[in-house]
Nucleic acid binder design. Structure first.
Lengths: 147, 147
DNA sequence: TCTGGATGTAATTTTTATTATAACAGCATA
DNA sequence: TATGCTGTTATAATAAAAATTACATCCAGA
């Protein structure tokens, strides 16, 4: 498949909103920045809304963060967008008649869970605010260079 | 795309070899356990060989681990198989004319690197021996229940 | 020394998750 | 009450992975 960039795009959307407070951003305007189509942006926003990270008014470009950027972690966004999709994937198509195969995959699960937890722990320590701060630094403070 | 199960399958291959020392395992025999085709197994083995995790003799079913299971970490296998493929993916198709978009993705890179490192640190602490031990436990010691 | 079974590798096809796109009902503001 | 945008669903296109095919090469044994 393609590599999923939904997490990156969702962060992009949230950061874009945070950087343009009260700017009447339509899904079309945001889509331009992400260089994609408005429907995809609305899909992401829908997931973010359901997770309580974003508030919006149907029919109007009034989307806004539902929390402070400092209160939104990368893990929050990951959960909102990817649900409980793991970062490593077991092979669930091994030969069920082969005890070795099945049980190796079973054993792997425990260790994949550990890796998942390590990644999620790190993600939970990174906030949208951190990302915005880094953005401002790297953009050399010319943070109002427009779209 | 499909989800990659190469890491899981490569571990499967290594564990299978470790569990059947000197058993003249053909790629076909291993493929049965993984329930896939021999060529795919040989591709995995080729990557493992290039990474120095596995030794083999061309033309003959003599593959064997090149190191003790305790000396092969999950990270070693990941690197052998996936190279430097990251677990989280940036969106590199954002609008280059949008400073915000580009720089948000740039800022994300730093944080994705942190997550990657956390995951890799954990992977480096897990060895093939650990996985085999867990396998034996979960298989309830009937570790010679055959293929 | 020659034969055969298996490897190593490249090329092609099939599968499947993801993104792109289209379509439209419904809402809230003007 | 007309309009612009949202929220959502459905379908098509894209891309990465696994499956499959093909074959040159090797080397152990007859």
């Amino acid at each position: 498949m393609k590599y999923s960039t939904k997490l990156s795009d969702a962060v992009h959307v949230l950061a874009f909103l945070a950087l343009h407070p009260g700017a009447a951003l339509t899904s079309e305007r945001i889509a331009e920045s992400v260089q994609t189509n408005p429907a995809y942006i609305r899909q992401l926003m829908s997931a973010l809304r359901k997770a309580g990270l974003l508030a919006s008014v149907k029919g109007h470009p009034r989307a806004a963060l539902a929390r402070e950027p400092g209160g939104i972690s990368l893990l929050d966004v990951y959960r909102a967008i990817e649900g409980d999709k793991p970062i490593l994937h077991q092979d669930t198509h091994t030969n069920p008649n082969c005890g070795v195969g099945v049980n190796i995959q079973l054993a792997l699960r425990d260790y994949y869970d550990e890796v998942q937890r390590a990644a999620e722990d790190r993600m939970s320590a990174i906030t949208l605010q951190d990302i915005i701060d880094t953005y401002r630094q790297e953009a050399g403070m010319d943070s109002d260079t427009e779209v």
